[in-house]
Write a protein that binds this DNA or RNA. Structure first.
Lengths: 162, 162
DNA sequence: AGAAAATCATTTGTATACGAAATATCTGGC
DNA sequence: GCCAGATATTTCGTATACAAATGATTTTCT
């Protein structure tokens, strides 16, 4: 059982010798996302998901939107957005209707129940944000948000960079 | 169309007045993860996924492992890990076998093809890491990694905090 | 007007992600 | 030797995520 042990070869270091998976940005982002998801599940009202939260909040801010527009504002793929809208329709938080002015567009509108839950989860999300960042000091939180914003705002499709 | 515009009410600010979805940690993490996923797909060899990369790298470092052990090392749920292993088996990058010493355990071992691809994607992942962090300076990258590490290392199940 | 290009939506296929329940197996204590 | 509790795996259900192909509609250009 010692045949493929990674042995140190003096003078010629093994490939990947200093590779640390735990310092790779992708791995760290996955862990941070997991932490957020766990806290989200604990603090959110009405079993709303993060994607549903984004969608509800954007509808609250902008009123009726079409699906593609919602997808752009929330940085979601059209296929993903459809799934989210479908589930919001099933739960009667939003209603969809054909746009009389443009046959391609699907208008998405908050129901009154949807408006209520949207306002509630928007408040919840503040707590979730703070709980997620709890291990960091106020200055560190600010720094992290700034760095992540810089990281993503250069993306062409980022709603931030607009 | 101006009925539900968010109008400033002097003295009594509207609920959610200063709520900015784009500054919520959950939203930013999703965008950063998307950015990483895009670059990952562009630079990775052999259509390996991020989870498969983590699994392959851990197998490279530790040799044969059982599934649950792999799940802990890569911070993946057992159900998720099973899916990843199943797909790695299907692609003949790993082989599974019952542990003779413990009937519950499933031993996962790299095949020679798996070892080759593991070494290749481990190298790829360095490029992906750098490409993902490209908008940041060297100092900023270091800061971001440090902050994310601090954020997740307090989690009970974090492989970092061990 | 009419064809081409752009836009919007849906569907399909692949791959996560994870809680929860069910099953199987092992270990320690009596 | 046997049972309770711990451990490992599998299965099920729900919800993303996104590429790619397809269909429908609108806009633009000539």
């Amino acid at each position: 059982m010692s045949t493929d042990k990674s042995k140190k070869v003096s003078g010629k270091r093994k490939a990947g010798f200093n590779y640390v998976l735990e310092r790779q940005i992708g791995f760290l982002l996955r862990l941070a996302t997991q932490r957020h998801a766990m806290l989200f599940g604990q603090h959110i009202s009405g079993r709303v998901t993060p994607q549903q939260l984004s969608t509800l909040v954007k509808l609250l801010e902008h009123g009726t939107c079409w699906q593609t527009q919602l997808g752009r504002m929330t940085a979601m793929d059209v296929a993903t957005m459809k799934g989210v809208v479908d589930r919001l329709v099933a739960r009667e938080f939003v209603e969809v209707a054909a746009d009389p002015a443009d046959g391609r567009r699907i208008q998405v509108t908050l129901t009154s129940a949807g408006k209520a839950i949207a306002e509630r989860v928007r408040r919840d999300s503040i707590d979730i944000h703070n709980a997620t960042l709890a291990p960091l000091t106020a200055a560190e939180r600010e720094r992290l948000i700034t760095l992540l914003t810089k990281l993503v705002s250069s993306d062409s499709d980022a709603p931030l960079g607009k």
